[in-house]
Design a protein around this nucleic acid. Sequence first.
RNA 1: UCCCCGGUGGCUCAAUGGUAGAGCGGGUGGCUGUUAACCACUAGGUUGGGGGUUCGAGUCCCUCCCGGGGAGCCA
Length: 423
Amino acid sequence: MCYIKDLYKYEGEEVTIKGWVYNRRSSGKIVFLLIRDGTGIVQVVVSQGKVSEDVFGLCDTIPYESSVIITGRAYKDERAPGGYELSFENIVVVSFAEDYPISLKEHGIEFLMERRHLWLRSRKPLAVMRIRSTCIKAICDFFDSKGFVRLDAPLLTPSACESTTTLFEVPYFDTKAYLSQSGQLYMEAGCMALGRVYCFGPSFRAEKSKTRRHLTEFWQVEPEVAYATLEDVMKLAEGLVEYIVASVLDKNSLELEILERDTKLLKKIKNPFGSITYTEAVNLVDMDWGGDFGAPEETKLSNMFEKPILVTGYPHEIKAFYMKRNPQDDRIALNFDMLAPEGYGEIIGGGQREDDLAKLEERIDEYNLPRKHYEWYLDLRRYGTCPHAGFGLGLERTVAWICGVHHVRETIPFPRTIDRIYP
RNA sequence: UCCCCGGUGGCUCAAUGGUAGAGCGGGUGGCUGUUAACCACUAGGUUGGGGGUUCGAGUCCCUCCCGGGGAGCCA
């Protein structure tokens, strides 16, 4: 048993691969079987005369995606896609597939999404999923190397973290619970216990968004650091993104090639990224001070820079209640967003948290939030409060940018959107 | 929720208001090195549902359903 990605180690030897029929071509007395096994695709050459008529006929007609165990001799050949191929010795058909609906030709997105469970087997989704996996590992390695403790937040929560209108409600015995839209408040508790913590998992938002940047279930990583300022976590965010991109460039060159990603642009992603204030950004895109950037403005901003750009100091009205305000200018928050280049837009949002009990109580009232649900959170200001800051990075948006795919739905195995919860 | 676009064989798409077609996929046959192989033949359709205009509707009108793109909101 050998994986296709390791074939080069077995040149001249007889090997057995277990996989599926990806494609097949024949030309009279020779059949080419393309077999995939999850690690790669290899071409198997079956010559008439070397095998029985029955076996030759079987190879010539076996349906796509049938599961097969093939034995053959590995050798190098310039003509083979991938550089190595197998000269056929034996085949065991584990299962004959029915007519496979997904061809190598074009399909519409609806057709593919309806068959996401099968579409995952295709070249492009495979490449994206491998890169997603690399990103996840890079994120964990990065925080681990910095001495962070992974402290996962609950997914069932008693109340809103941010706005109450975007929560999925679920029955919880005799009461109601909500699916978490962010682990941040819990990370604030965590950093007061462990100093530097992060959580990594799914978040849920019942936003009725229909855009290429939105999913109702998405993954985010949320670090939170005690005694950190806005500047500290901005540096942390830059380091994280630089590390993720470098990891993908290092481990996934083949996948980036399959995706036809221009790696020259990714190779430029080095610290420092650079930052501008909200006010400067507003002037750059020619809009009025006070509002949040719409998608067109965000895309415009994101296209102005080769590297991700950090935008700081938004008006506090358009940010969450827990954001600390700038002591020099009460109108603006001590926050930042990181916008990815090439039009991909916001991948990170974060900032310094309000650490003063009285001010936080005031904000909770201002935002009309139910005080009793936040008593535990206010405790963090009663018992040893200190400056602290953190951020959240959206995994799917980051993967979409790195892969150069247009829509975030292609960067998660089974996307959940406003009008799709199947398969 | 709002705006725009679309729904035709299994798939991707054609078709001035006038005989519903092509490529791919399926089937059959051919071809000893194919690269989304190619060539020939062949099967396959209540044009999303309902209503209307018309001698005649895939095409025009109304309505509903479904999908796509975008907005708002956000990671």
